[in-house]
């Protein structure tokens, strides 16, 4: 009997799209907050109720560990580098990420090299960055999903959310388990995101040889091997 991959593909699609939907809300709220001609850091505080509620309520709170807006350098009149970024915290109350963001004093935090920033900057509608060790924000093994924020046709920055790989894996694992082993999800580069087999774990690299089915509309693919492992 052939097990259809369709339910797994649609589960992955739905989980990912839910996160992107939340990010697009952040994008829209950011566009509204950036209405002033020379926006300031304080203008972005308007995003906070939305960011906090995405981190604390509803099914997305089990997935999204951090969410916010990353300003293009020079966008804000009073801070050349700025993230309006909030994260879940064990206390249950979101915390703002505070970092020295000036590359002149901190070699770590020139954020314009990260794919979650470069993807939106070149106009990619959906960027899935990772899995990667996110030593900028969480020190965890994460995915960062992002979308461009444009104001008057100009790139203003990225709206984004962090999803820990372990939580993403938990969300898609039941669907993957329905498939014969091995079945695993890879990103555009071939890095394994989630898997139903110990042979292919998240973080390992798939280098070809098995059947690959793209997840519609996303830079993710489902890889399936011959049933006997």
């Amino acid at each position: 009997m052939i097990t259809s991959a369709a339910p797994a593909l649609s589960r992955v699609h739905d989980v990912t799209e839910e996160v992107f939907a939340a990010i697009r809300e952040v994008r829209d709220a950011t566009v509204a907050a950036l209405a002033p001609e020379r926006p300031l850091v304080a203008d972005l505080a308007a995003l906070r109720p939305l960011l906090w509620s995405r981190l604390t309520t509803g099914p997305l709170a089990a997935l999204i560990a951090g969410i916010g807006f990353i300003a293009a350098p020079g966008l804000l009149a009073d801070a050349p580098w700025y993230l309006e970024w909030w994260q879940q915290h064990p206390s249950g109350q979101p915390r703002q990420l505070l970092r020295d963001l000036d590359p002149a004093s901190s070699a770590f935090y020139d954020y314009t090299h990260w794919e979650w920033f470069t993807g939106p900057r070149v106009g990619r509608e959906r960027t899935i960055c990772g899995p990667y060790v996110d030593y900028l924000c969480t020190d965890e093994y994460s995915l960062t999903l992002s979308v461009p924020v444009t104001v008057g046709g100009a790139f203003a920055g990225a709206a984004a959310a962090d999803v820990f790989v372990r939580n993403f894996e938990a969300a898609v694992a039941p669907a993957l388990r329905e498939l014969p082993k091995p079945a695993f999800l890879i990103n555009a580069e071939g890095r394994v995101v989630a898997s139903n087999s110990a042979r292919w774990l998240s973080g390992s690299v798939y280098r070809g040889g098995l059947a690959v089915t793209p997840v519609p509309g996303l830079d993710l693919s489902l890889v399936q091997g011959p049933a006997a492992e």
Binding site: A107, F108, V133
Partner: peptide, 21 residues
Amino acid sequence: RLDGRFHIEVAAASQSARLTQ
């Protein structure tokens, strides 16, 4: 500063959050 960043980037390339920490 750059030296420190380089070594943290090598650790991150391992895909291990604990080793990077």
